[in-house]
């Protein structure tokens, strides 16, 4: 089997989001014997997102925040929205997640987003930061997603938007309504970082499965990989968050 992965790192984000998510995808493909065709692109390239099976957009608004508008213009002109409508599996993180909404409002300017999610983001006074655990229930996925969050934006979901998960510990989209992230078709947005994918291998495999099933137009069974080290890290974090009692063994759904 072959998987065409596009890893997009906004060129002007200055500090990269961290390669953990990419490392997790590459290694798990390797361990599964899936032939990975990886394209690492930046906003200086001109990719056609529709030719990929899986697109990861990392975004940690950092150093060059003044350039975000340029990144967004690039994204708006790209084929990303069409790719999402066609069912390409897309994971948008942090600032990229915010881009997928209708708009982002900062004190001095409002940036229009892609509008794929019915949601908007307002810049807050302080940063929402700390450990973040959410409970995710999607067809074929019932798990906890664990990680860290660090964002200034408060994101609000409109009536037509669905959240990715429900906050168990942490702040999530806005610190008030217990929602975290968003889902639309095969587009997933989240504030989870540090690292999201290595620590949540079940979610990686879920994305793989969606992408491969769409590509090969058939049901695909992904045999479980030995996740001993991953499970330990996952469970250690659950213990720290004192969720171990209520946890329905997060890895059991595989």
């Amino acid at each position: 089997m072959e998987l065409r992965l596009c890893y997009l790192e906004p060129d002007t984000s200055g500090v990269h989001q961290g390669r953990s998510n990419l490392v997790a995808l590459v290694k798990r493909c390797l361990w599964r014997g899936v032939d990975l065709r990886l394209a690492e692109v930046t906003t200086r390239d001109e990719p056609d997102f529709r030719v990929y099976d899986l697109v990861i957009i990392s975004g940690r608004g950092d150093l060059g925040r003044q350039f975000l508008a340029r990144d967004l213009r690039w994204l708006r002109q790209s084929s990303l929205a069409e790719a999402v409508e066609e069912g390409v599996v897309v994971l948008a993180l942090g600032a990229a997640f915010q881009f997928m909404g209708r708009y982002h409002q900062a004190p001095r300017r409002t940036i229009e987003g892609l509008g794929l999610f019915d949601m908007w983001t307002e810049a807050g006074e302080d940063r929402l930061t700390g450990a973040l655990a959410t409970s995710v229930r999607l067809p074929g996925l019932n798990t906890y997603l664990l990680g860290h969050e660090n964002h200034r934006g408060r994101t609000w979901l409109g009536p037509r938007a669905r959240s990715l998960g429900r906050v168990i510990t942490g702040l999530g989209n806005n610190g008030l309504d217990d929602t975290e992230g968003a889902v639309y078709r095969n587009l997933f947005g989240s504030y989870l970082q540090g690292p999201l994918l290595p620590k949540n291998p079940e979610f990686v495999d879920y994305l793989f499965q969606l992408a491969l099933e769409r590509r090969y137009e058939q049901e695909i069974y992904l045999p479980p990989l030995p996740n001993l080290v991953e499970d330990k890290a996952h469970q250690a974090l659950l213990r720290r968050l004192r969720l171990d009692q209520s946890a329905p063994s997060p890895q059991s759904a595989l």
Binding site: A24, P198, K199, L228, V229, K232, A233, A236
Partner: peptide, 22 residues
């Protein structure tokens, strides 16, 4: 406190799990 996370990182760096103790 984050022994498990460190082990996870080393696994993904390609370290043989047999050489790893937490």
């Amino acid at each position: 406190q984050r022994a498990e996370d460190m082990a996870l990182r080393l696994k993904y760096a390609g370290l043989d799990a047999g050489l790893l103790r937490v």
